[in-house]
Design a protein around this nucleic acid. Sequence first.
RNA 1: GGACAGGUAGCUCAGUUGGUAGAGCACUGGACUGAAAAUCCAGGUGUCGCCGGUUCAACCCCGGCCCUGUCCA
Length: 305
Amino acid sequence: MSFPPIQNCRFLTGPTGAGKTGIGVELAQKSDAEIISMDSMALYRGMDIGTAKPTAIERAAVPHHLLDVIEPDEQYSVAQYIAAAHEKVEEIRRRGRSVLFVGGTPLYLKGLLRGLFKGPPADPAFRNALEADAAEHGPDWLHARLAQVDPPSAERLHPNDTRRIIRALEVYEKTGEPMSDWQQQFNKLPEETGNRVYVLDWPRHELNDRIDRRVDAMFAAGLVEEVRGLMARDRSLSKTAGQAVGYREVIEHLEGVRNLDETIALVKQHTRQLAKRQGTWFRSLPESRYVAMGGLLASGIDQLQ
RNA sequence: GGACAGGUAGCUCAGUUGGUAGAGCACUGGACUGAAAAUCCAGGUGUCGCCGGUUCAACCCCGGCCCUGUCCA
């Protein structure tokens, strides 16, 4: 059992700060489409400034889906996202409109393009127990355990990659079958899906400049106050939400770990690192069609149709 | 002006009883299937402040100079 690859959708993606949101709205308007956000952090209500969500005006201009659907204290997962996205696609098509995915979470993108196996959900107690084992016996100990029940996964995963090793052990524990038997989706490129993946592309130094300016703008717009408000709630940010770039660093700042200037500089640095990792995903996907943003801004978005 | 400490990678710093040097972070590349804005892996990028001396050989020893910090005048 797995989520199948999605069909006949357009995707607008690219590294953080590339300008996806604005181009997405323009493209959706020109093609009678609705937008499904493909962003793991924009799912959270109240995390607005640091995730650079579309503005109220943009959201009024084009219907946006899968924004603001969970509370910041909730956990979430790729599989939940994929399931929700498939539902939204059907719903939008029932209205006779087309779908445009906009966002920069590459794992979600790949899960949509290639499909995703339906495995057991995360078991926090199980994970905590194995993490304790890893801390006590060292990461190699878990890796050796995996090698006994799922040799292909053990072969594929680095011995220090404790997080994925734990997931593989979790799948075996819950299903009695090795994860490598389940995970076949990402390796084969489906044919004739009708999907189109546009990757907005900037020269590295220009993107870095844009990131620096955007982070400055986020702080000017009140990112620190937003985080302060989130921390003042009864329940603190979930493990997933609290690790978002801009949020994690500001939380630490508010806890007295470092001053504001250092925090701003660190958020810029982490955002640049995020953009670099996103780039690694896009390069690895044969589906990627790179679109130079310089040219796009100069000659209009018709080349995306 | 004097005393002391220091000047080694982009940054913070180790180190060499004399044989031209290495960690963390940054940076670059890669991986990624229910935490993914997370996590993991690989790669060393250098006038060892400057000038001279000793030596087969100086980043290290000696002399002078420059710079930074602290203290004393």
